[in-house]
Design a binder for these strands. Structure first.
Lengths: 102, 102
DNA sequence: ATCTTAGTTCGAATTTGTTCGAACTAAGCA
DNA sequence: TGCTTAGTTCGAACAAATTCGAACTAAGAT
């Protein structure tokens, strides 16, 4: 891969519970924190101690919750924080993610 | 009931993912919103379209995540927002809960 | 054309979460 | 003492999420 029609949801159709659900997994929190630090990362550059298929799943959950964007570049897909989500819909949440430990 | 040794966790032992998990259910979000509006409510005064046992479970999840406190008064248990959690550990989160729709 | 890299999708196994009825406990009241 | 109210706990059923290996696809390099 890649070259997939990555679908990014309209943020007004994303519920708060869906966002909370997306952030309820430590693995996905680590991914978000890495993207906050590094701006843009391919899937295989994300922190992960799970199998490829599992990581792909986690990235999909975050994307479906409107929290990240994915763009294709060659064989990689580059992920980044979807800042409009945090600025316009969930202000303060990005900071909570960034500062969350353990 | 009541007269239970309600256990309230030390907030420094509550992980961000646990809090997100606790807020990932629409039913529990409604409970939080009611407590934000009403200060203190008994379990049977909380908004709920589920069975007693289920409601008890949801209240327990919120309590274990450090988000609410429960105190006993006669036969009722009175629940309220655990403000220290939101002030000291998850600033901004209470507002996100309060303003969240659908 | 083939190989490699990067990621997706499928299906199945396992784990975790939700939901409920039924039985229980404890306080307050008659 | 017995009845009611309020909530908990247990166990089981069901639903949803996580995880992985294996097979796949697509782009780029050799």
């Amino acid at each position: 891969m890649a070259a997939k029609a990555y679908q990014h949801p309209d943020l007004k159709n994303v519920s708060f519970s869906q966002v909370m659900q997306a952030l309820s997994d430590p693995c996905r929190i680590s991914i978000m924190q890495a993207l906050i630090r590094e701006q843009e990362l391919a899937c295989n550059e994300l922190p992960s101690d799970v199998a490829k298929a599992t990581l792909s799943h986690h990235v999909g959950v975050l994307r479906d919750a409107g929290l990240i964007t994915t763009r294709v570049e060659g064989t990689k897909c580059l992920n980044s924080v979807r800042h409009e989500a945090f600025n316009d819909y969930f202000p303060g949440l990005l900071n909570l993610i960034q500062n969350s430990h353990h």
